[in-house]
């Protein structure tokens, strides 16, 4: 894939956790996925750097932040969610419904099978 991934301007996002050599580091896999999605959307011009910086900053400066910054990627995902809603890519309720659907799908997926949204029992009933 493109070598520009690591040089995405998003690496300059405020307070981004980084290793000693300046690469982003992630405590859990979902954080890397959230970062990667944001990089792709920005690369494709879905939003500008300043739109992103502003959305992230709004979340990072909310009053209930954890002192140790352990919730950094929670803020990141909240910023991304608000941005895609503000750009009318999805609505808040649509996103929340999908969150619950994925949780039901995970719990309904037996060991050894890939977790897929179709595994949500309620989704199947509706079809």
């Amino acid at each position: 894939m493109s070598a520009c991934n690591t040089t995405s301007p998003l690496v300059a996002s405020a307070q981004l956790p980084k290793s000693a050599d300046g690469d982003p580091v992630f405590a859990e896999p979902w954080q890397a996925a959230a970062f990667a999605m944001t990089v792709r959307l920005h690369e494709q011009g879905v939003f500008s750097w300043s739109e992103w910086a502003e959305a992230l900053s709004a979340e990072l400066h909310k009053p209930n932040r954890k002192a140790d910054g352990i919730d950094y990627y929670d803020c990141w995902v909240a910023a991304l969610s608000h941005l895609v809603a503000a750009l009318s890519i999805t609505s808040g309720p649509e996103l929340e419904a999908l969150v619950r659907s994925w949780q039901r799908a995970a719990e309904a997926t037996p060991h050894g099978k890939p977790i897929a949204l179709e595994n949500d029992p309620r989704r199947r009933e509706r079809k």
Binding site: E28, W30, A33, A34, M37, Y73, D74, V77, L80, S81, V84, I89, T90, E94, L95, L98, V99, R100, S101, W102, Q103, A106, L117
Partner: peptide, 11 residues
């Protein structure tokens, strides 16, 4: 958070 990121990915 895992479910939220998957939901964003789906959308």
């Amino acid at each position: 958070m895992e479910a939220r990121v998957k939901a964003l990915e789906t959308v």
